[in-house]
Amino acid sequence: MNSKNPVVRTVTLVFFWLVVAVVLFYVLFPFYWAIKTSLTSSARLSAEALQWFPGAPSFQNFRDVFTGAPFGRNLLNSVVVATGTVVLSLLLSVLAAYALGKFRFRGKTILMYLILAVSVFPQIAVLSGLYTMIKTFGLYNSWGGLILSYMIFTLPFTVWTLTAFVREIPTELEEAAYVDGASPLQTLFRVLLPVMTPALVTTGLLAFINAWNEFLFALTFTTDASAATVPPAIANFTGASQYESPFGLTMAASVIVTIPLIILVLVFQRNIVSGLTAGAVKG
């Protein structure tokens, strides 16, 4: 691109913008298509399925989605389960991260290995064990059962990330609190926690997204349509009658659950990128 020849420069520039345009189209088109479909009423869908723009945009699907199936209830379930998962795993991992990041004791390395091992557990490997356990404790079709089972993938991640963060906090802060006679818990909650806020936001957000999107456990540990979270609900969407194509409704439901997530991701994009890539490059 450093060529002095203006023709070569223009051609390169046009080529690059063309590539950018192709990438943008590839990345964004499927979601545009979902929005377009969601705005086409089911009566017109078969006629307009292949048109690039909705002929008569209508919000009919967005209204119907809440009348046919218990989708409002599914949304509530998802919000409660994802929030509960984040709160519980952050609480447990803040305590653990303080111990792992600031205390010296034997067996720490083995513990870190163990946590890493759990983080690569395939969910399917614990499915039958968890299933019998959840049945035994009567947690089937409940928020508690899902929140508890989600700990298997959020907890290793939050513990690991927060430990790395706690380690970087200067020890002087802790020492000052110690000199002032603060107990370990006071030190943690009064001194370290305020410093940890950015890390808590990032890890909490990523844990929330993972809990919000989880499918296998949600599908297996709920059978009632009204106990399901959003992912199994969207996977099982059917039309109001068997003759109706459910795709307009499915796309409306999809758009409803995706828009807040996209806004969240775009607002916090710097945190998310740094959270995803933390440590990955120091190799």
């Binding site: 943008l24 979902a34 999107n213 959003v230 194509s245 995706t258 991701v265 775009l266």
Partner: peptide, 29 residues
């Protein structure tokens, strides 16, 4: 712009992206 745009597919829940593509792959529509 590119960096922001490529976050969109990542932000979309897997179940949703599966259904979106399912619809784009539909035999007749």
């Amino acid at each position: 712009l590119l960096r922001t745009a490529i976050l969109v597919p990542w932000a979309i829940p897997t179940v949703v992206s599966a259904q979106m593509w399912n619809w784009m792959y539909n035999d007749s529509f």
